[in-house]
Amino acid sequence: MGWRRCRKPTNPRQSSWTTWWGQARILGRGQAITPAQEARLAVSTSRMQEALRAVHRREPNWKPTPQACETVDGLIRANEAIAREATLRALQRRLTRTGVGPYAKEWVAAPATNRRLNRTEQAEVDRIGRTYGCHWCGIKTPGTPRDHFIGDHQVPRSIGKPSRIYPHCWWCKISQGGLLSKGRY
């Protein structure tokens, strides 16, 4: 009877972890893990693996950004971050010009509910747009009458639950809508 290996690390810099009778071993140290954490860990791991499989079907050599963690919660967050990144990448590969664009640097966290952006969030989207440009074409003028960059949900709401909002110019937004609609209905 000993420590049970639950999964392989997804990248070399992330330490493997094991669980055993309410204990998790992360970076060689045993840590208490509650049943709730164990369940969240299992869910986040399976989501991450599913997202990675989706990317690797189209891009076998793709690797997520390395994550380091020392606690169980940190490991769960790392799994979720990898799953998000892999989902975005898979979308980018599947639908050209609809995922995260080459000029994407900063983003605004997408509201948890389906609400509109408030003034602060819109100002932040505009700031990012004026600094780095539209995340797809890099243009620094939004092309809208009120000079607001358009918030682009990633992933698109029609495909999944968005986690980030990037600035989009009018032209890219319109064309993305057309591409997403094409063949769907």
Partner: peptide, 19 residues
Amino acid sequence: EYVSFYVAGRRNVDIPVHM
């Protein structure tokens, strides 16, 4: 969300866009 909407006579149409 994509600041545009479409009118079509059937489903599964190509949406006209211009860059």
